[in-house]
Design a protein around this nucleic acid. Sequence first.
DNA 1: ATGCATGAGTG
DNA 2: ACTCATGCATA
Length: 376
Amino acid sequence: MTMSMYSTTDKMKMSAPSCFPGRYSPSYRSSEQMRRCMPNPSSRLLEDASLLCNSWSARQNGDIFAGINDGILSRAEALAAVDIQKHQAQHVHSQMPSQIKHDVMYHHHTMSGPPQRPLQMHHSMDQLDMLDPTGSMTTLAPISESPLTPTHQHLHGSYHSMNHMMSHHHPGTLSGHTGGHHGHSAVHHPVITAAVAAAGLHPDTDTDPRELEAFAERFKQRRIKLGVTQADVGKALANLKLPGVGALSQSTICRFESLTLSHNNMIALKPILQAWLEEAEAQAKNKRRDPDAPSVLPAGEKKRTSIAAPEKRSLEAYFAVQPRPSGEKIAAIAEKLDLKKNVVRVWFCNQRQKQKRIVSSVTPSMTGHGSAGFGY
DNA sequence: ATGCATGAGTG
DNA sequence: ACTCATGCATA
């Protein structure tokens, strides 16, 4: 029972070291993690700060919060929501309303679409004092230098200052309260702006949620176009040889694309993935890689042969006559269709299997032909 | 795509 | 004790 658990764990431990790109900065990754990791209000503050600073929350919650208090509000909202969840979870322990599940991470995969729709939740909490730039900016700072740096956690400086405020959170009656009506994002709030400036960041560029979101979308599309899987990307990253950047798991790539990583994590990963993407496309274009740039594309790079329609028709015609052509016959067919013999041979194999599936689904009893027919 | 788990850093 | 980044295994 527990054994299985451990085996998993062990594997992880072993593989982990090789894949450590580095550590990033705090913030939440997913709703569930949030739920799990935000037991006490106080601890959330910090993250809020960063959130706010990044205008993340604004994005999350919609334009409603774009106004001045928005950042604050949204943050508060998010927190409140979280708390609610948490409490319910604790108390009820069984049912957790999935509705409140809107967490603080990127959700909509609407890349370029309407930036955001108003969340339904928001009640005004007026804790402007919580806006402590100090902590927030710290959060952001590290990342900009090097993608993956363990620099994070000193941001707790402002921790205490905001510690007290979160004590209350009302179960989310999210009716429209008051606040936001301005069109600008939280980043433009004086305080925030100052913080950002102090941190030397480019909120509008690098940390802008929309930018990240757009990038994630582009990334995915281009990756697919390259015919590379998420897992491939993860492995390929190691070949990029970027300082401190190792392989990543399919999970992480997936989460990046689906925006289910924390803001900071997204920011940290973006340049890396961007680098990979560019390299990969370059290599794909040049058909050959430099020794310095070991395949950033899937090593095997074996592509699935696709047989054109005309050839396929011919094959089907042959198949109708002789489903099991001899080696010679196959060679002849291959010759005529200008296909590799092996390709033709495999095609027939597949075709026979396919037929078997079809046949068996129609006339289960007739399945047992000779070869592999398990009539039952 | 995601639930569950681990381990590092922080205070 | 907590948060965060990440990975394995699996739905």
